[in-house]
Design a protein around this nucleic acid. Structure first.
Lengths: 222, 222
DNA sequence: ACCGAACTGTTCCATTTTGCACAGTTTTCC
DNA sequence: GGAAAACTGTGCAAAATGGAACAGTTCGGT
């Protein structure tokens, strides 16, 4: 019986871990500390990564000096899969934002299993569709919304991102500089809005950020 | 023998047409005139589209009133494939920007063939990877570049887009309003830069737009 | 416990961008 | 052919954003 692809907003509910266990897929585990780089922009690309635990920031340096944070990956996400389609080098730098366990899957091994295991390639297609969707939503937001709204949306998504454990809405630790690079603005701007949000009670922070979802969602309506 | 996925920048060199002929894939053809809608945002989504000939604009209305043009599709591109992953409705409106022939593939038929034909699902994965890449590049550009550069880049991509026939660099006809919605700015701004580019000889236009690639590329360097 | 590095809070101004308005031109459609 | 609709060329004031600077604070490592 053929299974319809699953879907979700932030982390695809796609449970590849079970899949990775079912399928006989050769992999090596890697442990990374907070802020430790996993691969660098320009490195030769010959493996696909899978986040087992923790979180990963993927950033790209564009043109001469400007940097963008394109995605934050969490448990269940693949990254570095560009190498499957003839990209010889990494398009950006991946680094851990928390203690992180990564499965490293050799490109050819990944291709072999995609060929051999139907259920795996179907799941992977589902994963790619979910990611496409997320990228498209990010692009739409960038095209349509003010930086205040983009920040609110990013905070909400990051809050949901931590959903695996805590019932509260604490975010992965993340500097204002990083937030600025995620929403395409300057740190001044992020700082300004963060204080604004705090004054209005939309978020709290002493070091860790906690968001009040319903209040912050109001920003997106306006 | 397993074939490595192909890759390209604008239209994946992925030749799904040959594939669609090889595979026994049920489909119906649809003809659309310029500006004719193919599907509307909110419509029930139960088929995947494949562009046989022509061009398609995919736009999304976000929030209350603002609109973004997320992608322009050409021959060889799929669109509306979100429905494969449990999206019940169309996320945006697709309409022809030129006389266009579309293959409409029923969602279940598409899923059937993806299951049945390895080479097809591998090609489709390659296509999804290429699209991911393109979306990511658009996002990066949006995060890093000024509107002048974004316009220049968009014009260059659109010029390449027409590469199937003409050796010259004529673009598909496209209003300044549409360009504005593609790069996330206002028509005033687009008009300003278009005149600027024309003065400097980067582009010509009497009605159709023609770009001088090498000169226009200079804008991206600055 | 200390030092340096990284991060935050804050200010200020130049520039970019928006949003609007209106006249002239081209296209489309009857 | 002619009217309506869509598109372009302007201009301009208000708002948002970028960019830099600097002091105070927290964090990380030794």
């Amino acid at each position: 019986m053929f299974m319809k692809f699953k879907r979700s907003k932030v982390n695809p509910s796609f449970d590849a871990r079970a899949m990775l266990d079912t399928v006989r897929l050769a992999r090596t585990a890697g442990e990374f500390r907070r802020a430790e780089p996993i691969f660098l922009q320009g490195d030769p690309a010959d493996s696909v990564m899978y986040v087992q635990q923790g979180g990963v920031k993927f950033s790209v340096v564009h043109g001469s000096h400007r940097e963008a944070v394109v995605a934050i990956f969490g448990p269940g996400d693949f990254f570095g899969e560009g190498c499957l389609s003839a990209q010889p080098t990494r398009m950006g730098t991946a680094s851990a934002i928390a203690p992180t366990t990564i499965f490293v899957i050799d490109k050819n091994e990944m291709l072999r299993v995609l060929r051999a295991e139907h259920s795996f390639s179907n799941q992977f297609i589902g994963y790619l569709l979910a990611r496409n969707n997320r990228l498209q939503e990010d692009l739409i937001d960038q095209l349509c919304s003010s930086s205040e709204k983009r920040l609110a949306r990013t905070l909400l998504i990051l809050a949901g991102f931590a959903k695996q454990k805590q019932p509260d809405r604490e975010l992965p630790r993340m500097s204002q500089t990083t937030l600025a690079k995620m929403i395409g603005t300057t740190r001044s701007r992020v700082n300004f809005f963060m204080n604004e949000f705090r004054k209005r009670g939309f978020i709290e922070y002493n070091g860790k950020i906690t968001v009040n979802r319903s209040l912050l969602k109001g920003v997106l309506e306006a």
